[in-house]
Design a protein around this nucleic acid. Structure first.
Lengths: 127, 127
DNA sequence: ACAACCTTGACACAACCGTGTCAGGGTTGG
DNA sequence: CCAACCCTGACACGGTTGTGTCAAGGTTGT
């Protein structure tokens, strides 16, 4: 039948056999098995594996990231809880009144260099 | 004003000061800063921090998981790509015709124990 | 029957995550 | 002015991820 064994699948997908087993282990693929336990990769999973590979490196993801996304998708309750947490106060810097704190971010880059000749920095309002 | 410094915030949230800085670093909180750069935690972020703590341990999540969920939420394109990948062939074992492969999972637990007295295992259809 | 596959399990190892702790240096409040 | 904070950066360290490799044993095709 048109199904590849693990070494063949490895060659056409760019994963190593070792990694194909690992990808299965983290739950992202579940190739069917032959009667004697051999993994069999159909055309569909081969495509899926190529796509996954491409996605991971293009977006700098880890398998664990995608695995977590899968977990979110399968556990609606979890998804809601996480989403709800993220929803609270989603966007910041939450309009800071002082135009002063932005400098902080940039200052910290030059801070070390300028540390010597700075006698007394900003110093204002007590928290 | 009603805003706590990092040690005070640590005590009321259960995080250590070190971890509060870390949680900020991974992008899950962004406490505002005083004029001299001190982190200031308002009531809202304190609550958020307690909730986060609770969520993490109740669902066995890591900060990196929630950070990734945040990334997904903020990058719609990424979310779509990941979702689309997960959508393809979402549910398996994809109805296996042979009632035989289920045994595999259970067998492998007793396999080592039974290895000695098993002269010739299943052996059927050639992949 | 024998080479060339396949299986699981284990050791190994770099890179990262989550944490603590310490150093060097500013800030603050009494 | 001094103790008690705060800041960042660094070293350390156990745990997880991602990966290779090897061992012991079953399967397959010629």
């Amino acid at each position: 039948m048109d199904a590849l064994t693990i070494h063949e699948a490895a060659e056409t997908t760019g994963w190593s056999p070792r990694m194909l087993r690992y990808v299965e282990r983290v739950g992202l693929i579940m190739p069917r098995r032959s009667g004697s336990g051999y993994r069999l990769f159909g055309a569909e999973e081969l495509q899926r594996l190529r796509t996954l590979r491409e996605l991971l490196e293009r977006r700098e993801l880890g398998l664990s990231d995608v695995a977590f996304a899968l977990r979110l998708r399968q556990d609606a309750e979890l998804r809601d809880e996480v989403d709800q947490w993220l929803a609270a106060t989603p966007e910041r810097p939450e309009f800071v009144p002082a135009p002063d704190w932005l400098r902080w971010e940039q200052e910290k880059h030059s801070k070390l260099l300028a540390a010597a000749q700075r006698p007394n920095p900003t110093l204002m309002e007590t928290r």
